[in-house]
Structures are given as structure tokens and as C-alpha cells.
Design a protein around this nucleic acid. Structure first.
Length: 459
RNA sequence: GGCCGAGUGGCAGAGUGGUGAUGCAGCGGACUGCAAAUCCGUGUACGUCGGUUCGAUUCCGGCCUCGGCCUCCA
């Protein structure tokens, strides 16, 4: 199955061809750790988790190297530290842990490498020094600045014309800049801010340089896939490209650039600065991580997605149906050589068309529920489970899913169900219906089937 | 102003130059003691105005509306 991916660089879908199929490299811009991640922050992590799983299944788990960074030096972190009076390291550690825990709850696999910016100061300084000595950057008043005029392709990636940007007057026109579009590689730190000694004095790295330095160190000069949110195309990725290519004799930084679309709430961009957010933590209080994951993947990753309670409710209903099907197959062993169906893989390999892939899941459910062949049931069960694994879904115990996990009153419910079964055996339908009504009042729904009565918790 | 992207049936959301994905919800039926689940059936959907075409939701152009980036931002 050949993989096709949309490349931001060319704005088209292209066949994916890694430089080395035995070492497929992917880098995704991770979080700046100073607050809890909101569900919008989780989209790239989730989307590229699916790509990570897909690449592992296509090239072999040992042949994919996925790096997602942690930015632990940043002015917002400094501000949070000052406000709370806590040491910066405390804050970055706490929120990095929360980030990992929140993503874990959504079924996101840990990346192969999780580089921290502060652990790569030497590499950052070395890259800046090289850029200065090659004439692509310069020092000014304790800063190191990248000279955009030294990179002829600057602006090509994000399709931006320099004069328009400067005319916008929103770039920081600092007096020490040779050109208003030049951006900071290194900036001085006052004594109360974290800083490292450098050839340009005590200071800290600019925003973009950490990614260039960490990619070079862990993945190489040219990587296969670079991902992130749509808003990072400019300036972040444009600047990364400038730094890295000028450090590497013009070698391209990434063969494929992928950018996920944004989440909205009530049609407005979800953004920390506007407060229009819901955190992963909050969502996880009321919804299973798998429901949240399913909801996120129900739209194509490049499309905008309006996040709402209704979206989550629909995701839950659909998952209930699939798990209900799997529950009916509980006595069937999945086929030994199980693998996802061709149609499912074809959908995912078409630029990660998760909605279409999920439609295939429904087709499999229908097949399972209509066939009379045990052989086909085994086949379909295997296809459902292996397809689910690529999406990071459906790996839970179906019965447990339907019951909403384990609860203190499970035994009591089981007892009532047994009592009802006894009543039904005696044709005492008044009593059996009374028990069912009693359970219904507690959001318990019963299903009488060939394997006896099953129950599930609706919420 | 420049640059992106989007407008699909009650909702979500794929896709395609010509037989109306898929899920949720609704309706009818089968099944069931009755339900539930499941299955079967059921919807004259593609912002708008033109153009190309035998034929356009799908291609081209104009327009309208909405969102994003151009400053930190997933």
C-alpha cells in the first residue's frame, strides 16, 4: 500500500518516499510547557500519532524515528514563573508531565524521542556560531539575528513577499536589526531570567532555533516529515527552514511538511490568548479518552473542526455501536493472520483520510452483524481490531466499554439482572419489567440475546 | 491590504464530471413476551451567479459569507 501525503511545500498530495526506508524520520513541534494543554493543542499530537502508527505498520516499528520536542525555555514560561513565584524548572516539569499524562489518556503513544530545548543549548549555540561565520547571521547588542537577506528563498515556503510583511508593520522593527524581517536566534537575559553563557553574552535562545538544532542532532540534516499546526507555517517553519538550510549548504530540511487544521469552538479559533478553550483535563473528567480521540479523528486532519458536546455525543454513540458489534463477537477468535482491510488502509494511505477509514469500520460492523459464517466473523473481528490499532482505537474490552468501566454497583446490577432473568423464566413479565424499569432509571439498558442478558450504562 | 482555507441533507462528515460514502438522530418494517441491540427499507444535499460540457455538487471565472495566518499561538 503506497502512502500519499499532502505536502504544504507544494500544496499538493505526493507519494511519500522516505530517504531511507529503514529509518523514517518525523519531527513534530511540541508544546511550550507553562499551562495545561487544551484540546486544540492535542490535535497535532493525535493526528501525528496516527501517522506514527501508520508508518510503523508500513515500514516496521523499529524503522520509524519520531521526535516531538518540549519547549522549556520561553518568555511565557518566565512570566508564569514570575507570577507564581515558583522556580522555572518546577513549572516546566509539572506541565510536561501533565502534557504526557493528558495525551496518554487519549491513547497517544510516546514519541521515540522527546528532546528538551534546555538540554540542547550547546547545539543551539554551535548552530548560531556557524550561521554567523557563514554570513547568514550577525551579532548586535547582545543578540544574534538571522539575516533574511542572506537566504534567497526566504518567504517561499509560506508564500510570503517580504515587502508585504514589512508593510504590515507588525514585525518587530528593533533598532539593532539590519533588516526589519531579521529574526532573533539568541537574545540577552537579565539576571532574573534564565540564561546561558554564549559568545554574545549571557542569554537564551530565540523561538525557532531549538527545532533546527534538535532536528539536526537527533534526526539529521534532511528529515522525511515535519509536522505541526497550521499556524506554524509562518513564521516558525519558514524560519526553521532558513536556519537549517543555511546551516547545511542548502539541503532541504524536510521532504514533506504537514500541517493540521484548527479546532474552533462556536466557529472561533480555540486559543489560549482568547480564553476560548477547553482543556484535555476537563474533557477527560466527563468523557472516555477514546471518545475524545474518536471525535478528533472524525474529521480530516487538514480540515477545521468545530469542537462541541454534540460532536462528543456522536462519537460516543458510534463507538458504542462498534464496541457492541465486537461484544457480539466475544466468543469468536480473531483470525490469526489478521490485518486491516484493503479499503481501510487505502483510506488512511490517502493523506490520512480518517473519516473515510472510519466509514470502513462501519462497513465491517455491518458485515459482522449480517454474516452467518463463523469464518467471516473471525476475519472481520481481526480486521476491526487491527484497523482500530492503527487508529489507536477499539483495543479495550467491549463489555467493559459498554458498562462504562467498572463501578461499585456492578455486582448489585448483576444481581438485579439475574433476578429479572429468573422472573422471565417464570413468565412473570410484570416483575421482569419492573426490574428493567428500575435499572433504566439508573441509566442501565438491558439487552436480551442468545448469550443471555447483557447490560450497559448509558450516560 | 497580502496569503491560505472553508461553505454538502436535522447534525457530524467523506467524496466524485454521469448509478445520492459513512455515522448519529428521525420515520416504517422484521425480530422480541414487551423492549434493547441488530437487520431491512426510508432523504429529490452539495453558498450564489455565469461559463465549459451531451451532462457539474465535482472543472473554470465572478460574487457572497465564514474562518485562519501576516505578532505569541497546535
Amino acid at each position: 500500500m503506497s502512502l500519499t501525503l499532502h505536502n504544504t511545500k507544494t500544496r499538493t498530495k505526493e507519494p511519500f518516499e522516505p530517504g531511507d526506508p529503514s529509518r523514517v524520520t518525523m519531527y513534530v513541534c511540541g508544546p511550550t510547557v507553562y499551562s495545561r494543554p487544551h484540546i486544540g493543542n492535542a490535535r497535532p499530537a493525535l493526528v501525528f500519532d496516527v501517522l506514527f502508527r501508520l508508518l510503523r505498520s508500513l515500514y516496521g516499528a523499529e524503522h520509524v524515528v519520531y521526535a516531538r520536542n518540549i519547549t522549556d525555555i520561553d518568555d511565557k514560561i518566565n512570566a508564569a514563573a514570575k507570577e507564581s513565584g515558583r522556580p522555572i524548572g518546577d513549572i516546566t516539569d509539572e506541565f510536561a508531565d501533565i502534557y504526557r499524562a493528558d495525551l496518554n489518556a487519549l491513547g497517544v503513544l510516546p514519541p521515540t524521542i522527546e528532546p528538551h530545548a534546555t538540554a540542547h543549548i550547546d547545539e543551539i549555540i554551535a548552530m548560531i556560531e556557524a550561521l554567523i561565520s557563514s554570513g547568514h547571521a550577525y551579532e548586535a547588542e547582545g543578540h544574534a539575528l538571522f539575516s533574511v537577506s542572506a537566504f534567497a528563498d526566504y518567504g517561499k515556503f509560506s508564500n510570503r513577499i517580504r515587502d508585504d510583511m514589512i508593510a504590515g508593520a507588525r514585525v518587530d522593527v528593533a533598532p539593532y536589526k539590519k533588516d526589519p524581517a531579521d529574526f532573533v536566534l539568541w537574545k540577552p537575559s537579565s539576571d532574573d531570567l534564565p540564561g546561558w553563557d554564549s559568545p554574545w553574552g549571557r542569554g537564551r535562545p530565540g523561538w525557532h532555533i531549538e527545532c533546527s538544532a534538535m532536528i539536526e542532532k537527533h534526526l539529521g540534516e534532511t528529515i522525511d516529515i515535519h509536522g505541526g499546526g497550521h499556524d506554524l507555517i509562518f513564521p516558525h517553519h519558514e524560519n526553521e527552514i532558513a536556519q537549517s538550510r543555511c546551516s547545511h549548504d542548502g539541503a532541504e530540511l524536510a521532504r514533506v511538511w504537514m500541517h493540521n487544521g484548527f479546532l474552533t469552538m462556536d466557529k472561533d479559533k480555540m486559543s489560549k490568548s482568547t480564553g476560548n478553550i477547553v482543556t484535555v483535563h476537563e474533557l477527560s473528567q466527563d468523557h472516555a479518552g477514546e471518545t475524545i480521540r474518536f471525535a478528533m479523528l472524525s474529521a480530516h486532519y487538514r480540515q477545521p473542526l468545530d469542537w462541541s458536546d454534540d460532536l462528543l455525543a456522536q462519537a460516543k454513540s458510534t463507538l458504542d455501536r462498534i464496541y457492541g458489534t465486537l461484544d457480539k463477537l466475544c466468543r469468536v477468535d480473531a483470525a490469526d493472520d489478521a490485518k486491516p482491510s484493503e479499503a481501510f488502509l487505502a483510506a488512511l494511505c490517502d493523506d490520512m483520510n480518517t473519516p473515510k477509514a472510519m466509514a470502513e469500520l462501519s462497513a465491517l460492523c455491518k458485515a459482522a452483524n449480517t454474516t452467518t459464517s463463523d469464518e467471516e466473523r473471525a476475519l472481520v473481528k481481526g480486521q476491526l481490531l487491527t484497523a482500530g490499532a492503527v487508529l489507536g482505537l477499539l483495543q479495550g474490552d467491549p463489555s467493559s466499554w459498554l458498562k462504562g468501566g467498572t463501578s461499585d454497583d456492578d455486582a448489585e446490577i448483576d444481581a438485579l439482572v439475574e433476578a429479572r432473568t429468573a422472573a422471565r423464566a417464570n413468565k412473570d413479565f410484570a416483575e421482569s419489567d419492573r426490574i428493567r424499569d428500575e435499572l433504566a432509571a439508573r441509566n442501565i439498558t438491558l439487552e436480551d440475546g442468545p448469550d443471555g442478558t447483557k447490560w450497559r450504562r448509558d450516560c
